[in-house]
Amino acid sequence: MVGGPSSADWVRRHERLLFGVLGIVALLSLWEVGTATGYLSSTIMSSPTGIVRAAQLEFGRGEIWGHIAYSLTEYAIGLVFAAVVGVSVGFIAGWWQRAFFILDPWITILYSTPTVALVPLLIIILGIGLWTNVVVVFLISLFPIIVNTLVGVQSTGQWHLGVARSFGATQRKQWTSVVIPGSLPFILTGLRLAAVHGMVGVVVAELIAGNRGLGFFMNLAGQYLQSGTVMLGILIIGLWGVFISEVMKRVEDRFEMWRPD
C-alpha cells in the first residue's frame, strides 16, 4: 500500500489534473442532481445522463455520422483553400510594398466585417448548400492567415536578409533560408486561429443556412425541444475544437524548437 506522505506527494505532482477533473465531476454531479430533484428543468437543461442517452440513440441510428462528415468536409475544404490563398496573399503583400498598399485597405475592411454578415449575400449567390458553408469557412479563416503571414514576412528583419546577401545567397536561398523560416511561427499562429475561427464558420453557416451538418442537426433537435441532442452537438463541436487546437499546438512546437519559450 501507498503510505501517507507518498500519497500526499502523488497529489502534489498531479495537482493540476486532479483539480481539473474534480471541477468537471463536481459541476456534472450538481447538474445531474439538480435535474433529478427537479430544481432544474430536465426539458430545458437536459442532464449528463440525458446527453448520454441522446448519444446512444443518435449514434445507434447512425444519421449523425453523415452530419459530422458533412461538417468536416466543409471545414476541411474551406480551411485548405484559406491556407493556400492566405499564405500566398500574405507573402505577396508582405514582400512587395506596393502590393501591401493596394491590399491593405481591403484586408482591413474585410477583416473588420463579421463574416456572418455576408451569409445572406452568399445564399443569394450560391444558394443553400455545401458551397455556401465552404465559402463562409474560407472567408472566416482567410484573414487571420493573411494578416499573420504578412506580419511575419514584414518582421523578418532586413537585418537577416542583409546577412544572407553578404554570403551571396540567391533570391531563392533568401526565401528558403530567411523569409520562410522567419515567418513560419507567425503563419502557424495564423493557421491555429483560422482552424478555430473555421469551426465557428461551419456551425454558424449551418445554423443559418444548412440542410445537413452538425449545425443543422442541432437546429432541428432544438425545434423539437430535444435539449439532450442539442447538448450532444455542442459536446461534439467542443471536442473537435479541443482536438484541433491540440494538433495545432503540437505542430507549432515541432516547428519552433529554435524559439526560446
Binding site: V163, F167, P181, W258
Partner: peptide
C-alpha cells in the same frame, strides 16, 4: 557581396532557426 569578403556582424545576426552547424555552414550552402 562575395564570399572572398566575409562579414562578422554585430550581435543578433545568427539565424535563430538554424543550429550552430547550420549557421556555420550557411555560406558554404550558398
Amino acid at each position: 557581396p562575395a564570399p572572398s569578403r566575409a562579414m562578422v556582424f554585430q550581435d543578433p545576426s545568427l539565424f535563430p532557426w538554424y543550429t550552430v552547424t547550420q549557421n556555420v555552414a550557411y555560406g558554404l550552402a550558398c
